[in-house]
Amino acid sequence: MRIERKSWNDPVFVATVAPLALVMVAFFLVPLLMTAVLTFQTTQYYRLVWTWDLKIWTEVFSKPHYWTIMMRTVAMALICVVLTVLIAFPAAYALATRLKTFKTQIQILIIFAFLTDAVLKTFGWILILDKNGVANWLLMHLGFPPEMLNLLFTPTGTMIGMVYNLVAYPMFTIYLSLVRIDRDLMLAAYDAGASRIRTFFEVTLPLSRPGLYSGAVLVFVLSLGAFLEPKVLGGGTSPLASELIRQSFETRVNWPLGAALTMVLITIGALMLAACAAFVLRRPSTGRRPA
């Protein structure tokens, strides 16, 4: 891929870039700036008071409670990334290389499950995870003690929901990376004397990195903002950042606090992504051969 240098004096370039730039500025940068400005305001009797004050930030940095929730959110997001990738990679690998006969059917099923509304799916998990739900019923009939699992309204329940709702993203990105790998590269590795396992780690895995990384980033960003799963399956016992922010805005009607917590979450997410990007880009480009 070549990046062309274009001049801002080129009217065609400006005309083609301007609409997207305007949309980004109007609906992304401006709201973000407004949120940042909001954090320096205060409230009195549930009303916004227009000032320039560091009161909210002092509160944010002095209450460990907020930071516990932030750290829990990041930890949950990271665990979710690891679990989804661990589930998605073998599935994508099987879909790309092994399953020939039912490939299309399986893909259609995955897409259906992916496109079904997340609220429906998440509530569906209640039926499975409930004490008297499908999971315990099945385990009981398999000879395990009754009501063995107690997952509903626990962080584990939240995690199951998050992994289930997000696993399709890395599955697709990894699948797309895997099908692009020339099969001859694997033959070349075998020919050079590599075992199947060695070939996987020397050729398949490094070349599926783009899909692996993009899938992981998608899952990370989306699970930082997970709202539905902690609410429905976690039962509010261990809230995540999005619930804390919702409470600040809606229950406590403290908009500056909600804005400040939003900025904290965005900053943590952006810093972690930047760190990951630096780590990934430290390796020289996996240059592609010209077609």
Partner: peptide, 19 residues
């Protein structure tokens, strides 16, 4: 298996490891 044979192949599309 290919790995244990005294043969080495040059592929039509070369199959150099891009990474």
């Amino acid at each position: 298996p290919a790995a244990s044979r005294p043969t080495r192949m040059v592929f039509q599309k070369l199959a150099l490891f891009p990474h």
